[in-house]
Design a protein around this nucleic acid. Structure first.
Lengths: 222, 222
DNA sequence: AATGTTATTATGTACCTACATATTTTGTCA
DNA sequence: TGACAAAATATGTAGGTACATAATAACATT
């Protein structure tokens, strides 16, 4: 039934910006309950095809967007799934007040102590991803007791700290001498960066730049 | 109520792999209807936090993933939203059998004629994104009649051709001399690439590489 | 005409029921 | 023991009802 409704809309040849009948009418036409139409429309709304507004009704998005869902796994898992041997190395672990750039990511105005963790992830002994991370000690005081040599911060946080909001930013940078040295690539090479910041109920958890070696690709699943 | 349930689960301190009570029991505990729990759990399932299986019950994903949703808008829209002036230029429009690389993207075994379209998108007169696209003339014969000088292929396709499947791949490359020339950057500079392939009911529509100028960032919304 | 109040309207959320469906467990028979 | 059928189980989907909520339109008041 849900699929029937989806197809009815998709093949109904509504153009961008067109307003659809109200749920109740659609339900009448398609001979089903309003709640069923509601569920179907919610799906379409989630997938970005239509926009719904109370009282305003439902209309096909006038500016269509491609909505892609990325699955960013734990790095260890990602490496092992490819059949490669995983390893990781803690480069740095220090406590400090975060720089303005980090504060901005967290949308914080008053600074507090955080843990800075830098680590390298390896795939079959080769550098794979360089991780530069800040962890809020106010929100995650337990992190003080973890040394991150056995288990990477990436893994420890994902396994131990639920989050309610996550911002992701993707971009490319050229390797500076430090990145080039750590990742064992030439200076200037194009590197793919995934930047992630997480919160739990508006309290900052962590922000991380994951800098990948050349050849790295992020794919949508599903 | 839904939020209450989400919080109850998030703060319930279930670890990865843990099995949650069945919907009916949760409903009992939280004093609400099963359908409400069902919806809440569907949400959590969609956001990748838990996995549900009929008869198997619900459990927290043992390998947590960060699930991020990207909104990739029409390029014109993206530029205009920033308050910049949009422009675009058709560089090439030719008909040919696609190379193996494109066939592979489409998961096709037998080749058929396609339209290759190259275009530059400008923001305030500066190169913004270079688009290298193949369009299947078998699936979209109407494309033969469009010249793509007035409206970019990017925009025409999104407005006129619905799709049912979309694969996205993101990565970084260094500018070769051709890219450097077209995008007016130095050779070797890091460029962010969004590669997209779409189908309608298993029939290939288009595959495109959108190569962005340095500084480009893709952000998650929501 | 500007302002505030009150309907109206379409979607959002929740409740409850019934049945469908996928999976596993159990039972039965050769 | 092995194979196959039947019961049990947890989630999935749909129906139908009631009320909440946001946005707008209509109306009245000054």
């Amino acid at each position: 039934m849900r699929d029937t409704i989806h197809n009815a809309i998709l093949c109904g040849r509504y153009g961008p910006g067109d307003r659809l009948p109200r749920d109740a009418d659609l339900a009448d036409n398609l001979n089903c309950a309003r709640s069923t139409v509601q569920r179907a429309m919610q799906d379409l709304s989630n997938s970005g095809l239509v926009e719904r507004r109370r009282k305003g009704g439902t209309r096909v998005r006038s500016e269509p967007v491609t909505r892609a869902t990325l699955n960013i796994p734990i790095i260890r898992r990602e490496v092992e799934q490819k059949g490669a041997r995983y390893g990781h190395q803690l480069i740095r672990r220090s406590q400090a007040l975060p720089p303005r750039k980090v504060m901005a990511k967290f949308e914080l105005s008053t600074p507090h102590h955080m843990l800075q963790v830098e680590a390298l992830h390896f795939s079959n002994g080769c550098p794979y991803i360089l991780e530069d991370r800040w962890i809020s000690l106010k929100t995650v005081p337990e992190a003080r007791e973890v040394d991150f040599t056995q288990q990477s911060a990436n893994e420890w946080l994902l396994l131990n700290q639920p989050y309610s909001r996550c911002d992701v930013s993707l971009f490319a940078i050229s390797a500076n001498d430090r990145f080039a040295d750590l990742l064992q690539v030439k200076i200037g090479v194009a590197l793919f960066v995934v930047e992630r910041t997480t919160w739990i109920d508006k309290a900052p958890i962590t922000t991380v730049q994951a800098i990948a070696t050349p050849g790295y690709q992020l794919l949508t699943r599903c």
